[in-house]
Amino acid sequence: MSQSLYLQVVNLLSALLLLIAFAMLSQRRVVGLITLFAWQGLALALSTTIVAYSTGQHHLYYSAALTVGLKVIAMPWFFFRLIRQLDAHREVETLFNVPTTMLVGIVLVVFAFNLAQPISQMSGTVTRSILGIAMASVLLSFLMMITRTKAIPQVIGFLAMENGLFLAATSATYGMPLVVELGVALDVLVGVLILGIFFFHIRETFDSLDLKHMESLKER
């Protein structure tokens, strides 16, 4: 009974993760986007902790701690500092209007759920039904990267995609080996730092963080 209660809580948290992915898709402001990203990281960390506790997979604790440290505290703090320095907390521009994006998002969720159905049946873990949600949140983050024109929302989309991948790894195989997870976390951290430097250079060159200016960078 308690085992199934843990599973229900994990299901609830992963459903929450999907909901936050949708909320990020509809969010118009950069500040709200970063806050939602932090909450998504927290939901991921909680569900990872509960999976770790209920299945006795101790290395998942480290994974959860990494998620809290990096994605709930360090990166949002870094982004908040960045938008203050760049003075970039104006509205996020989207290519399509929000309701259209949401409808596309629903189609993606249906697609991901159908795609995950046969795969999750091959997996032997108790949390295998979450795989569909993980894939859906990866696809939704993709969609966010596609529909946003500014640099910071695109990077947040990239990081949210990584959240989805971690959820997929936790649900399908109880997480990747610790070395891999440490490597990925380090990569993401370094990536964000480098992209932060890039933001300054992009703004210095184009006077804007809008990435459509980069289309004019062509070799002659």
Binding site: A15, L18, F22, I106, V109, V110, I133
Partner: peptide, 23 residues
Amino acid sequence: VPEFLGTAFLLGVLAMLVHLLLE
């Protein structure tokens, strides 16, 4: 308002999908 209620519709559809997947 259409956006507000569109979000409500989306949550409703999502609820149904999540039920079919998880429960």
